[in-house]
Simulated assay, not measured.
Amino acid sequence: MDWITEIKRYTPCNEQEEKDKAIILDCIKQFDNILTRENKIAHITSSGFIVNKMRDSVLMIHHNIYNAWAWTGGHADGEMDLLAVAIREAQEETGVKNIHPVATEIISLDILPVLGHVKRGAYVSSHLHLSVAYLVEADEEESLIVKIDENSGVKWIPIAEIDTYTNEPHMQKVYKKIVSKMKALRI
């Protein structure tokens, strides 16, 4: 299944996802460069919500730009296999090699605002991340490695304590939504 069909088939769990899905699909129609950062307004990103086997902890990074504990993820940069992007980014940002999908379906669709910032010495204007996220699993026993150009920490956080670590209210809502879906689906 191609990435656009995957987004079209995704069943939103609430009004936020319904509206974000409609806007994401509209952006896909409007822009031919939506999979790349060449689109300075909005572009597709893919994230991994990394859980342990017991489903009671999530692997997060302390993101340098946002100065917050967050899920892993990154830009599609032209790649059409968004699940592969989520897994690659999770591996690169945590050092964990053995990461696999809990399910191949999208777990969350969100439009995430990115404020203007400096990256690698250049200013990046405010824009939107059209986020496609997946639920993936990793082994808590694997070694963790900080990717110093992107994060300053990597650690397993108890799912019940995510709000204690995450200082971004909009991301707290995203994480709560995913945890709620995991419970509803008995994942």
Rank of each mutant, 00 (worst) to 15 (best):
Q30S: 08
F31M: 02
D32Q: 06
D32K: 06
D32M: 04
N33A: 06
N33T: 09
N33M: 03
I34G: 09
L35W: 07
T36S: 11
E38F: 10
E38S: 12
N39V: 03
N39L: 07
N39T: 04
K40T: 15
K40A: 15
K40Q: 15
K40H: 15
I41M: 07
I41K: 11
I41W: 10
I41A: 12
A42G: 11
A42I: 02
H43P: 06
I44N: 05
T45H: 05
S46W: 00
S47C: 05
S47E: 02
G48M: 02
G48I: 01
G48L: 01
F49Q: 01
F49D: 00
I50W: 01
I50S: 02
I50Y: 01
I50K: 01
V51M: 03
V51Y: 02
V51L: 05
N52P: 04
N52G: 07
K53N: 08
K53Y: 12
K53V: 05
K53F: 09
R55N: 15
R55H: 15
R55Q: 14
R55E: 14
R55F: 15
R55M: 14
R55D: 13
R55I: 10
D56E: 10
D56W: 10
D56S: 12
S57E: 15
S57P: 07
S57M: 12
V58R: 05
L59V: 08
L59I: 10
L59P: 11
L59H: 11
M60C: 11
I61F: 12
I61G: 11
H62S: 10
H62I: 09
H63P: 09
H63Q: 13
H63K: 04
N64A: 11
I65M: 11
I65T: 13
I65Q: 13
I65Y: 13
Y66T: 08
N67E: 12
A68R: 02
A68H: 03
A68W: 03
W69Y: 04
W69P: 01
A70H: 03
A70Q: 05
A70Y: 04
A70R: 02
W71P: 01
W71F: 07
T72F: 01
G73T: 01
G74C: 06
G74F: 05
H75G: 13
H75E: 15
A76T: 04
D77Y: 08
G78F: 07
G78D: 08
G78Y: 07
G78V: 06
G78K: 03
E79T: 06
E79Y: 05
E79R: 03
M80N: 12
M80S: 10
D81K: 00
L82P: 00
A84V: 00
A84H: 01
A84G: 03
A84N: 02
A84C: 04
V85E: 01
A86L: 02
I87P: 00
R88V: 03
R88I: 02
R88E: 05
E89K: 00
E89D: 06
Q91H: 09
Q91I: 06
Q91E: 09
E92L: 10
E92D: 13
E93I: 08
T94I: 08
T94F: 08
G95V: 11
G95E: 13
V96A: 12
V96D: 10
V96Y: 08
N98K: 14
N98C: 12
I99Y: 09
I99S: 06
I99C: 12
H100L: 13
P101S: 15
P101H: 13
A103R: 14
E105C: 11
E105Y: 10
I106E: 02
I106T: 05
